[in-house]
Amino acid sequence: MTAGNAKPYRSRNKNEIARRAAADIPEGWYVNLGIGLPTLVADHIPPDREVVLHSENGILGMGPVPTAEEVDPWLINAGKENVTLVEGASLFHHADSFAMIRGGHLDLCVLGAYEVAQNGDLANWTTSFNDRVPAVGGAMDLSVGARNVWVMTSHTTKDGQPKLVERCNYPLTASSAVTRIYTDLAVLDVSPTGFLVIDMVEGLTREMLQGLTAAPLRYA
């Protein structure tokens, strides 16, 4: 191979990862989408499928981004962005909101990650054990509370370091929490025996994917 050779595969872009994840959310699920990349999933849920979106600051039944005419300045999501409500929506305080989360009433939360270990350990809140200003938000509650915890992430860091690992190096958000991972290259389940590849992008070989993953892969 010479430098500059095109890769034999094309990575999924952010919206394609979101669409792939959205396709797997069944009708009737109550879902919390984390700040950042996971928020995109909302745009890709098929319109004929009723999925109820939760925001931890106290909304069940979030709708799309408002137009300038329909914006309500009193209505924001956990990412502090203006949102709308769908018919059937409800509003509540933080303790009730986290009772929904911690009490196991949400079917799914989708989170970002710095690292995921093959046993489902999640590291997504800080990259340092000596963080100067640690800030955790709701990630620890969400990752222990929702019935399913999916991660949406790039398969490797910008520097090409694997984010799917045998053991997390970064401080943990939760132990054995993640159930499924959607990356720009593949979809993987966290199984009792480690990462299990459900599908991967066209043109990518098993050897290439293993080379970008720091834990053994098995295939469904």
Partner: peptide
């Protein structure tokens, strides 16, 4: 620093006269 849901529940418990509680959040973390 307190996880957001733990913060909410500590406040709720305070107002409700419950002095302490157990939660799964933050177990196994620093």
């Amino acid at each position: 620093v307190v996880p957001q849901g733990t913060l909410a529940e500590r406040i709720r418990a305070g107002g409700a006269g419950v002095p302490a509680f157990y939660t799964p959040a933050a177990v196994g973390t620093q």
